[in-house]
């Protein structure tokens, strides 16, 4: 066929769109209000696509196990980790983190892990959600 795309394009018109319409079919004008509506049972949330195993999301930190060796600071490419010398603990600024998980690999006590939480957008880079300590 000379014009090979005509058929696929017509077929596509009758197919269900591939896009997962997260969080709702139409973008709500206020996400915060939409979320309160969802909690009150007034609106329905379309769930995001599931993350695969081994996904690199928000870092979790087991503060008790940390010995303050600061090795994670040495390898972090983004300078996202800060030492707290008095307590011998660390503080991670997620807004600077590039999710390479190198800190997870080097930690001798295995106290850093990557969760599958990925909804980290925030207007304030120093908000409570974006600082792990």
């Amino acid at each position: 066929m000379r014009f090979s795309m005509i058929l696929p394009v017509f077929k596509q018109m009758f197919k269900k769109p591939w896009t997962n319409k997260f969080p709702a079919k139409y973008q709500p004008s206020s996400t915060t209000k939409f979320l309160t509506d969802v909690e009150a049972g007034k609106a329905k949330l379309i769930l995001p696509i599931e993350t695969p195993e081994g996904f690199r999301g928000k870092i979790t930190y087991d503060k008790e196990a940390c010995i303050g060796c600061n090795l994670c600071i040495k390898v972090c490419p983004c300078g996202a980790i800060e030492a707290k010398p008095k307590e011998k603990k660390i503080k991670i600024y997620l807004s600077r983190c590039c999710f390479c998980s190198q800190c997870n690999d080097i930690c001798p006590k295995d106290c850093l892990k990557m969760s599958n939480e990925f909804l980290l957008a925030d207007t304030d880079p120093y908000s409570k959600d974006l600082i792990v300590e």
Partner: peptide
């Protein structure tokens, strides 16, 4: 542009596989 969407629809599968194998879609680390 219809071919752009056709190829990128297929590329999506390769990206999904990348995410499955490395945990990231683009900067694999």
């Amino acid at each position: 542009d219809s071919v752009l969407f056709l190829t990128w629809q297929m590329r999506e599968k390769a990206l999904d596989l990348t995410e499955y194998l490395t945990g990231n879609r683009i900067t694999k680390g």
